[in-house]
Design a protein around this nucleic acid. Structure first.
Lengths: 364, 364
DNA sequence: GGATTTAGCGGTAACGTACACGAGCCTGAC
DNA sequence: GTCAGGCTCGTGTACGTTACCGCTAAATCC
């Protein structure tokens, strides 16, 4: 490497030791039929010559075709479409190894995800990227596949007690904490704030609540947290619950919506003419949010970077499959805080995705 | 692809047409010596058979060794060390193509960068990743290399009027805009704010000023901007200028330091016991900033994600060199707004880098 | 003690592509 | 009629690695 010559190949190692390349190959791969002493000499010489296997040659010879499954929900569209896009982008950028990707979708988390996982035969795929809906129920399928040698990678959510290899998501606790700090900095007077979340048995939502509550107490003691509203990702329920919340607490000064399903909440605020008066903090970014951010009617949104999540999930999986690099137990990305001023940097991508989706729909 | 058979190779195309693989190869690569009619038949058949070249075989045969230069300043350490780390991480993750990377550093921007660029012979490298200090002065060297076929990629700064291929940096205008909005939201009363920046002929600093001033007027009309302080990245000068600023304007309510060189400013604020009273917005993240953020003595810092910059710069360059994918004219990353609550997500990396640096120093 | 096993090692054919070299053909000039 | 020279195309080899077969010598068996 220092002298910048061509890298040593397997035959250089063989020649240096006066043995055949077959023996060197066996030594490298821990295949039987090599004297332990010889193996040690080979490994030492490989170290000395800085031997690096030529992946191109290996892949050519083995004709390795990696098989990867990517099973994601369609809902929420604004989140999982760019996430899939991120996976695709990472998959398209690969050269030197052939990859078959089996993309599949199901309506929403909890609706068909389990059946899809269970339908995967042992050993069919080298790796699976998926979003566990109900961690507890998915565990048996995850563990079975994991034990059969399939690398299981959670994305956007997690099943931390399962034997999945790793998980990629936004740090949910920090998202909640950030929401607390932002509301605390923005609302000067002593008042009360609300949190509207998704189903709390989804780990992410529970973590956001934990982060929000803890940091509200720590960083914004002048704000008191109203009983949390668990909206179950249903639009009608969210509408009803938000109305009831505002009726019971007309003095609420800030609202943190920790799910991407924030439109019902915003609609209620608009009909009660509270948009702009109540400080609203949303989650994720989609077309409808853009004008609200631009006009200052909502304070900010915590963007969960779906594209980046998909991209890194695929990169990590590929790295493991090709180079045996075992990833961290989990990768937690930092959410982006999107205000009005930095919105253009994110809006472009969101808008172009929305355009692409509608034009694709027209085409179909 | 649908049926999932093995993909067609060059010899499948040849056999289907009853011609030799050499002719097929010539047709694919637009090499002379092929009857246009034959070429058309080849391309049509390739389409029909869904021919996809085997990249592993191609790389093996060509034994393509990409040669890439990465020339970066050492100062500011806290920024360029992780940037280099990002480049390294991307370079290490490559398989299927051999890459020689020539890492080189010079003391600081404007000190030796030009000489380094000028010392590169035409065609020595396939690509160069570098940080242009003085864009105007670097232009001739950039253009010469670019014309000789070397892909020139700016990182952290830009020379937009040169013929560099692309540039990767944080969106400076948005950084300034974000600073304005944050100060506007945090400082309720009508007052004045200051901006301390680096040399304004560096494009990034000028852009930050533009974004800050424009958005202050737009989003925070209750704040008036004092005459901007151009610190020329010198610690002593920054000290002197900050003292003078505070003497002239003791009522200043907020300060935006748009360069990573914020320590002198913070020291002056501390000695005048203004830390925590004046809202301070910094740029980038390094060990000394962590306790200040944790204790709330500075409002936030705009993290310019050096690691991500280095990583994406390398990825873009590689993608171009391997797959001829021409990048956008420029890639502008979104800065991360680091508050107290989301600091842990960034501090880990910064702290571990600092530890690694000191232990490396001890080792040397 | 001869036959058979076994450990340890060497030789070599392929993987799909790129390219140097040369073969065959046709045209035109002498 | 011959031969140069351009055009079109085929043959063969090499890239670094792995898989398979085969060889030798020592160990084991009946």
């Amino acid at each position: 490497m220092e002298k910048g010559k061509k890298p040593a190949g397997i035959k250089d190692v063989a020649r240096a030791l006066g043995i055949s390349i077959a023996t060197v190959d066996r030594a490298f791969h821990d295949r039987p039929g090599v004297n332990p002493k010889t193996r040690a000499r080979v490994l030492a010489m490989a170290q000395k010559l800085n031997y690096r296997p030529n992946l191109a040659a290996r892949n050519l010879k083995l004709n390795r075709r990696l098989s990867i499954a990517v099973y994601l929900p369609e809902h929420i569209h604004s989140f999982f479409t760019p996430l899939l896009e991120g996976v695709r982008s990472a998959a398209d950028g690969v050269f030197g190894v052939e990859i078959d990707v089996d993309y599949r979708t199901y309506p929403r988390m909890g609706e068909g995800d389990l059946a899809l996982l269970e339908s995967i035969p042992d050993g069919r795929f080298d790796g699976v990227i998926f979003t566990p809906g109900d961690p507890a129920k998915s565990e048996p399928a995850i563990n079975r596949l994991s034990r059969s040698g399939t690398a299981m990678v959670c994305v956007a959510s997690d099943a931390p007690h399962s034997e999945r290899m790793t998980a990629v998501s936004v740090d949910a606790y920090v998202s909640g904490a950030l929401a607390a700090e932002l509301l605390g900095r923005t609302i000067p007077r002593s008042s009360s704030v609300a949190m509207i979340t998704g189903e709390l048995h989804v780990l992410d939502h529970a973590e956001k609540l934990r982060g929000f509550a803890a940091n509200l107490a720590l960083l914004a003691p002048h704000l008191s947290l109203l009983p949390v509203v668990e909206s179950h990702e249903s639009a009608q329920e969210a509408l009803r619950q938000t109305r009831s919340l505002l009726k019971r607490n007309p003095e609420v000064a800030g609202i943190y919506v920790s799910t991407a399903n924030s439109l019902p909440v915003l609609r209620v605020l608009e009909e009660q003419q509270l948009l702009g008066k109540v400080q609203v903090l949303c989650t994720d970014l989609f077309a409808e949010l853009i004008p609200l951010l631009e006009s200052g009617r909502i304070l900010a949104t915590l963007y969960q970077r779906p594209f980046a999540q998909g991209k890194t999930a695929f990169e990590i999986l590929l790295r493991y499959l090709v180079e045996q690099v075992r990833p961290e137990h989990a990768t937690r990305l930092a959410p982006h805080t999107v205000f009005r001023s930095n919105l253009p940097l994110f809006a472009d991508r969101v808008r172009s995705k929305a355009r692409a989706a509608t034009s694709a729909a027209r085409g179909a």
